[in-house]
Nucleic acid binder design. Structure first.
Length: 203
DNA sequence: ACGCGGATGGCCT
DNA sequence: GGCCATCCGCGTA
């Protein structure tokens, strides 16, 4: 019997949450079906001090979910065609979050394949933040969702404690070259797993 | 195995 | 008007 990650899990700093989410299961219930995968790659965004964070320049209609209490979803639209999903961390009014960058698919893989015709193999189904949202059917309708209470999107606990540090590879975040001194900060975390995003394989 | 550019649209200045 | 926390396919080797 699997239990869901509870509120206390999320009420921590985003680096701790980003590390602890590795190895946990993300579940999307869509059309009565469970679509799920194990988190293998995350990035932490540190809020008002972090030039790479969407919340750096303050609150807008788009990023308002980042100010909610830890355990809510922040879903945004980017490059005119892709959705990306974040897990809000920390306390209410502290706009810090964790971007989910890759999953190892475990349930509903047939549905994911149908939704991701461009994927040449199962390693490409959820190996990027836009890809996993396409595979799981995550879009604006899930922005602001409470992951502790929702029956559409939530995390199930597979591990009681975070992976030991030696099992987690740490690198700079992807796609934030504009963020000056924050671009090189080691805030991307991944397991050595075939399903991590492509730019991950470089190291 | 790279690298590059096009797709495509909402949001902020 | 310009910028994006991206993805994909095509080009060269």
């Amino acid at each position: 019997m699997t239990d869901r990650l509870d509120r206390a899990f999320y009420l921590r700093d985003p680096v701790a949450v980003a590390r602890a989410l590795l190895g946990q299961r993300l579940v999307r219930v869509d059309g009565g079906r469970r679509l799920a995968g194990v988190v293998v790659e995350t990035e932490a965004y540190l809020g008002r001090i972090d030039k790479a964070a969407h919340s750096y320049r303050g609150r807008t209609a788009r990023n308002a979910s980042m100010w909610r209490e830890g355990g809510h979803a922040y879903v945004y639209f980017i490059y005119g065609m892709h959705w990306c999903v974040n897990v809000v961390a920390g306390r209410e009014h502290d706009p810090v979050a964790v971007l989910i960058r890759a999953l190892e698919p475990t349930e509903g893989v047939d549905v994911m394949r149908a939704r991701r015709p461009a994927a040449r193999n199962d390693h490409d189904l959820c190996s990027g933040p836009g890809k996993l949202c396409q595979a799981l059917g995550i879009d604006k309708s899930l922005d602001g969702e409470d992951l502790v209470r929702s029956d559409r999107l939530f995390f199930e606990r597979l591990r009681k404690r975070a992976h030991p540090a030696r099992e987690i590879t740490v690198t700079p975040r992807v796609g934030v070259a504009y963020a000056e001194e924050w671009a090189a900060e080691p805030l991307r975390f991944h397991l050595e797993n075939l399903h991590v995003s492509r730019r991950a394989g470089a190291s």
